[in-house]
Amino acid sequence: MAIWDYANPTRFMRLADRILPWLIGICVIAFAIGLYKSFFMAPEDYQQGDTVRIMFIHVPAAWLAMMCYSVMALSSIGTLVWKHPLADVSAKCAALIGAAFTFISLVTGSLWGKPMWGTYWVWDARLTSVLVLFIMYLGLMALWRTMEDPIKAGKAAAVLTLVGALNLPIIKFSVDWWNTLHQPASVMRLDGPTIHPDMLVPLLVMAFAFSVLFFVLHLRAMQNEVLRRRVRTMRQKAAASARPAAATATTQPAE
């Protein structure tokens, strides 16, 4: 079945209803395993002690912050190039979730930074570019709210989203391009991860759990957005059918 077959919102709603219970189950199990491994199996770091446990939520949240924006960028291409009816729905619904994960990564990073770096915040490339990402999410959410017509808002937001996607490589490579307090990549490297498997496995399980959580929330939010547009159309239909009657009622006394 081609992706175009899911352009029909009703078919998408039915498919999402079928997938969601499975995804929720996988998500709960993955979080249970991930949290157990993070607190009961992963050892303390020889330098950072127990604060390394912040990594098990900070790193997946940071990955998800970027993944959400990548989903929005791909959806924006779908909106502008293929005019897929669910593409702008997908982009709009990923924005709040992405903003939430970016917020988590900024706050947990800040709380991790205080005991390790001696400060909650520094204006270095990695932290600043992630803050810019957070502001981009808020700006896009504001843009969607300023336009009443979701199709027009979707197109405007798609252009802005694609411009903002330039920030993604800056975030990823900021630790290589500039001097920063933030450590360089230690998992996604060409020469393999530099983290010991005792810490890497819980981290990957938590990253998987967070990713599934994103798909659950995203699918559910997309279903809600489809319903919101149905409600909007029905209200417009009701208003349109009420208008001639109201016009007749107002003109009658004058006759």
């Binding site: 303390e44 002690g49 127990d50 604060t51 446990r53 912040i54 939520i57 900070h58 988590i104 706050v107 947990t108 709380l111 991790w112 205080k114 005991p115």
Partner: peptide, 13 residues
């Protein structure tokens, strides 16, 4: 450990 407050705050948030 000594930084329990930071860890708990992260998970709570």
């Amino acid at each position: 450990g000594p930084h329990a407050g930071f860890i708990i705050a992260c998970y709570f948030i």
